[in-house]
């Protein structure tokens, strides 16, 4: 067929500079168009506006007795809010930073010492540690114990023993008044 019909050839093989420019322009615009199509397709999978609107939650602390932990759902995950006893506070503050694998002073994690607020997600593989309910095992350090792979957290939610690499994270929160805290 080569002699009869023009052979298959690129768009801009001949025909001078003008067409080269046009083909280039079309190619560039086609690329832009592809990006412009793919971008919103990807963005649709981001959190939607109603999900973002639930990014913070308010917790009333007045009903939590000393020694009690409540579990609040925040952004789809559990948050532990613990009203710590004097003993627990003392234990948390007494721990030397040298003993910790993820050193962080208790005063940084709980600015208001009787309230400890941490995300209840084990930093190893995402399980929820036990220790919030009465009768739960609380591990060797009196805080939380993750049943999945045996991580022990202390009364400040810091990792003390086991495979987890880091302390239970402290979410950003703000005390709106003495008994009302906004998480997130």
């Amino acid at each position: 067929m080569a002699d009869a019909a023009p052979p298959s050839e690129s768009l801009s093989e001949d025909g001078g500079k003008r067409r080269d420019f046009l083909v280039l322009a079309a190619g560039a615009m086609g690329g832009m168009a592809t990006v412009a199509v793919v971008w919103p397709l990807i963005e649709t999978m981001n959190p939607s506006a109603d999900v973002l609107a639930l990014a913070s939650t308010e917790v009333d602390l007045s009903a939590i007795e000393e020694g009690q932990t409540i579990v609040v759902k925040w952004r789809g995950r559990p948050v532990f809010v613990r009203h710590r006893t004097a003993d627990e506070i003392a234990a948390a503050q007494a721990a030397s930073l040298d003993e910790l694998s993820d050193p962080q002073p208790d005063s940084e994690r709980a600015p208001q010492a009787q309230w400890l607020i941490v995300e209840g997600v084990c930093t190893h593989l995402g399980c929820v540690p036990l220790g919030s309910k009465l009768g739960d095992p609380r591990g060797e350090f009196g805080g939380w114990f993750c049943p999945c792979h045996g991580s022990h957290y202390d009364t400040s939610g810091r990792i003390r023993k086991g495979p987890a690499p880091a302390n239970l994270p402290v979410p950003t929160y703000e005390f709106l008044d003495d008994t009302l805290v906004r998480i997130g």
Partner: peptide, 8 residues
């Protein structure tokens, strides 16, 4: 883009 494609 369509106009450019038409010329090409």
């Amino acid at each position: 883009l369509t106009a450019v494609l038409f010329v090409i």
